[in-house]
Design a protein around this nucleic acid. Structure first.
Lengths: 207, 207
DNA sequence: AAAAATATGTAGACCGATCTATTAAGGAGC
DNA sequence: GCTCCTTAATAGATCGGTCTACATATTTTT
């Protein structure tokens, strides 16, 4: 025990690679967690910094240490991270889905579970911010567009691989359908819209 | 000229029936116009009362005279009014549309024009508020759900009249599709998503 | 290896601006 | 004179953001 360790060894004790594992990255992560949760639930304005620091348990000063760009910088990173998480979850599902229809119904089921389990708080993590910022020149607007683009692209690739005609049109249509169903489900606090769309989507994708 | 008029006559000069035409209803209407415009553009929190009174040209105090319930009461009425306006526009279109597919493409075109002409500000007038309020116990949440229900019901009736099977599922699916397309169009500041969905919807409704 | 120096991060008081809402007083038209 | 409506000053809370002091690691110096 108590073997002498080089700086590199100590460094790797707490991380797999660069950037992670330092003391403050825990704080940073918690701030992002809280931000992600709050903006998904209530949008950009619904996620006040006071709520973020209360939910994360981190002090105000740490926020501006880790995100010198302030709220917008933190929200931007939270949005990108949320986009990656959803993208990954869908990607995992895509691996086991035999066809596009099964993938989409699987995604709808997954999102429905997530939505219901969260008390109708967690729908699409970027939708609210995207709408709030659509008419502004805030850089967050572009961040949201990029997240949607990443989803659209992944979906299009899968549809093309499955041999669907017009994969571009179809991918955007399916994405719109899922986003719209999530919106209605949140508005009604019910997964009915998701279920209804799921029942129809199979016929649609068989076209 | 200058004929002496009874109060009732004067009253009816500017209105068809009760509630309209009085002096202050002009103010009330302008406040609602401004509120409707601002919440559609930036959501509940994006429509600050300072902006509403600036856009309407009306003083702060008048707002609380006409809407003793404050911002929430005014926003609720603006949402309902917006819901009625869209519902009526769609109803007008429905009168001349030969079938459901034509109606939906017509609606998508109408909404696309409106969205583009407004500089990507005017999409769905209730969507942003619906998402912002979905996780709260604010009464506005229910107002949004009612507006969606009214649209869903009207659409379902039309689809049923046209002889489509599963008009309930189909109506919600079409509504989700339109809402999702509007969301993506606003996020991308482009009517592409609306056009793509329009190309696909015809085949779908021919099922 | 001890001590000094430097980086890294924490902590919360504080600021001006803005938010919604209230209030008291005055004008306009019957 | 009476009701309907307007007007602006103001209150109290909350917003995002800044600041300084402090604590804890880590590196450098001796």
């Amino acid at each position: 025990m108590n073997v002498k360790r080089s700086r590199l060894q100590k460094y790797e004790d707490r991380s797999s690679f660069f950037g992670m594992g330092r003391k403050g990255d825990e704080t940073r992560g918690r701030l992002l967690d809280a931000t992600q949760d709050l903006i998904e639930s209530g949008g950009y304005y619904g996620a006040g910094l006071n709520q973020v620091i209360a939910a994360s348990g981190m002090p105000r000063g740490s926020l501006y240490f880790h995100f010198p760009g302030g709220k917008d910088a933190m929200v931007a990173e939270a949005l990108r991270r949320a986009g990656r998480e959803i993208g990954q979850a869908v990607g995992d599902l895509a691996g086991s889905a035999p066809d596009a229809a099964a993938l989409v119904t699987g995604v709808l089921g997954l999102l429905g579970d997530r939505l219901e389990a969260s008390g109708w708080r967690k729908g699409c993590p970027v939708a609210t911010v995207a709408l709030e910022m659509a008419a502004t020149d805030d850089p967050l607007q572009e961040v949201c567009a990029e997240v949607y683009d990443s989803w659209d692209g992944a979906l299009r690739d899968r549809l093309a691989a499955d041999g669907h005609p017009d994969p571009d049109d179809l991918a955007t249509t399916v994405l719109a359908l899922v986003e719209g169903a999530l919106l209605l489900a949140r508005a009604h606090r019910s997964r009915d819209p998701l279920d209804r769309v799921a029942r129809k989507i199979t016929a649609f994708l068989a076209l």
